[in-house]
């Protein structure tokens, strides 16, 4: 190989950079963020359910809340009818009623994914 030293050095740096996540993470535990559902209100529920299905909430909760905000700000009332026909008040209080701890619930996944949230710039969060 011509200029083998330089080429192999460059190749090694490239391979080292691109495989960095592997040898950084290998052998380490990957704990699930486990947002906690252990709150008094949820524990009392016979059938544990959120406003919408678990799958929908996991992927779409931010858009649901955004939709609530837009509806309320547009003065189109503040009652949300879910896909199962239940009525909810479009308010953070609906969330906090069950998920009473932001630290144990919201923050778990948001920190895991490093989500940059605009929510708390205006809204207050529960104290617990």
């Amino acid at each position: 190989m011509y200029n083998g030293g330089k080429i192999i050095a460059g190749l090694t740096i490239f391979l080292g950079l691109i495989t960095f996540p592997i040898y950084y993470s290998v052998g380490k535990a990957n704990p699930h963020p486990n947002p906690s559902l252990d709150t008094p209100v949820i524990n009392q529920m016979k059938v544990k359910h959120c406003v919408e299905s678990r799958e929908f909430m996991r992927a779409n909760h931010m858009r649901l809340l955004r939709g609530w905000m837009k509806t309320v700000l547009a003065g189109k009332g503040c009652v949300y009818v879910s896909s199962t026909g239940e009525k909810y008040n479009m308010s953070w209080d609906t969330c906090w009623n069950c998920h009473s701890s932001k630290k144990q619930f919201c923050d778990r996944c948001h920190n895991y994914m490093a989500v940059d949230l605009p929510c708390w710039k205006c809204h207050s969060e529960p104290n617990t």
């Binding site: 996540p21 592997i22 993470s25 290998v26 052998g27 380490k28 990957n30 699930h32 963020p33 799958e55 996991r58 992927a59 779409n60 858009r63 996944c109 895991y112 994914m113």
Partner: peptide, 19 residues
């Protein structure tokens, strides 16, 4: 078409940690 990003990260972390 939203997906569960936490699930995606779990899958990717499984891949990069070779588990």
């Amino acid at each position: 078409t939203r997906v569960d990003v936490v699930g995606v990260k779990e899958l990717v972390m499984g891949l990069v940690s070779l588990h």
